[in-house]
Each structure stands twice: as structure tokens, then as C-alpha cells.
């Protein structure tokens, strides 16, 4: 017998009407591509076809033993998950990020942790084991192998397969990042990733 344990992220959805469901998933289906979507309530053929078309994994009326408190899950059912942190952010961003920019050409080595309130332009690598926590905007022109926690309006990164990147408490999957710089930003409560500088070679 061959077994492999993989961790699965689960999104619980309680169905009320089809339109709400479609508007929510039209905006956010990219985020949930690696998730298992568990539908509660009465499922119907329309919703199942929609999920199949988007290539999302789903189950109907399954119960899981949840490690997370139910409160948080309820919040996710009704709102997009990104709305939660957003409430606290704006005051920090307003007066700090727009006035200061820090430029660093320093390797962030394993075990080093940068805690930054302003914006940061980093012209060097973040090595495995290094960490950046930032409340402003972030641009890194080299590869990242450590972890990034960014709560700014946007960040720009290259494809970084070994990195752990979290933007507004949502993990950014490397498969949406291209080799060149990508702009990751929060627009209308959803995270959009767009490649930038298509013609410019930064190499």
C-alpha cells in the first residue's frame, strides 16, 4: 500500500441562493483553487456544474472535525476572508507608507528578521530562514526563499518557489507569479496578481 498525507485547506460554504454564490466565486475562485470546498445546504446541478467548470474540488454536506474556532469559519461563509484584516489596516497605511521609502541593498540572511512600518525597496535576496514583516508596500527585485508578511497596498515580487508569502493574511501561491516582477495588490477586497514590465528585462 502506498499512502501520502497532504494537507488540505477547506472552505465551508452555506448555500442560500445561486446568484450570491456565483458573484462570490467569480471574484475569488483563483484563491480557492487548492481548497476543498464543502457545500452545506441544498446543492443543485447549476452550482455543481459551475464548480466543475472552474475546476474546483468540492464535496456536498460533509462534516469535518474542525481545528479552527467556528467563529472564524462563519465569518468566511458570509464575507471574503480578506475583509477581516482590512478593518485594522487603513489608519496605519494612511500616514506612514506614503511618506517614507526605505531602500536596502542588503542580503536578508537566515535568522534575520526585518520589521518595517514604511515602504521598502529591497534590491537583494531573502534567504531561506529570513523574514520580512512589513505594514507598508514592498518591492523585492531578487528571489525570495524566506517568508514575507505584507500588509501594504501592494507588493512586487518575482517568482519564488521556495518562499512563504502572505499578503493580508492570504497565502500567495507561487504558481501565479511569473519569472519577472508581479504586482500583488488588494483591489475591492480581492487580491489580484498581474505581471509587470513585460518588455523590460531586469536580468
Amino acid at each position: 500500500m502506498k499512502t501520502k498525507q497532504s494537507s488540505v485547506k477547506v472552505l465551508d460554504v452555506t448555500l442560500t441562493n445561486n446568484d450570491d454564490f456565483v458573484t462570490f466565486f467569480d471574484r475569488n475562485y483563483i484563491v480557492f483553487q487548492n481548497h476543498l470546498i464543502v457545500l452545506h445546504g441544498e446543492s443543485n446541478a447549476f452550482i455543481e456544474k459551475y464548480l466543475n467548470d472552474k475546476k474546483l474540488n468540492f464535496m456536498v454536506n460533509a462534516e469535518f472535525k474542525k481545528a479552527r474556532p467556528t467563529k472564524e469559519i462563519q465569518a468566511q461563509e458570509t464575507q471574503t476572508p480578506k475583509e477581516l484584516p482590512k478593518k485594522e489596516e487603513p489608519p496605519v497605511l494612511e500616514h506612514k507608507t506614503k511618506t517614507t521609502l526605505k531602500v536596502l541593498d542588503k542580503l536578508v540572511r537566515s535568522g534575520q528578521e526585518l520589521n518595517i512600518e514604511s515602504d521598502l525597496l529591497l534590491l537583494n535576496r531573502v534567504n531561506s530562514g529570513g523574514k520580512i514583516n512589513i505594514n507598508g508596500n514592498l518591492i523585492i527585485t531578487e528571489i525570495v526563499e524566506g517568508s514575507i508578511r505584507c500588509n501594504g497596498d501592494f507588493m512586487m515580487l518575482k517568482s519564488s518557489p521556495k518562499a512563504n508569502i502572505v499578503f493580508h493574511e492570504v497565502e500567495v501561491d507561487n504558481k501565479y507569479l511569473t519569472e519577472r516582477l508581479n504586482r500583488v495588490e488588494l483591489k475591492n477586497n480581492e487580491i489580484t496578481i498581474t505581471p509587470v514590465l513585460k518588455e523590460t528585462n531586469w536580468g
Binding site: R109, S110, G111, N127
Partner: peptide
Amino acid sequence: EVSSIRDADRAIGILD
């Protein structure tokens, strides 16, 4: 190998 590189990276960080 990766573990040696990461540990060296950490050691350099402390040195610096």
C-alpha cells in the same frame, strides 16, 4: 547541500 548553506547563512548573520 542546503542545510549547510542555511546554517552558514545564519552564522554569517551573527558574524555581521
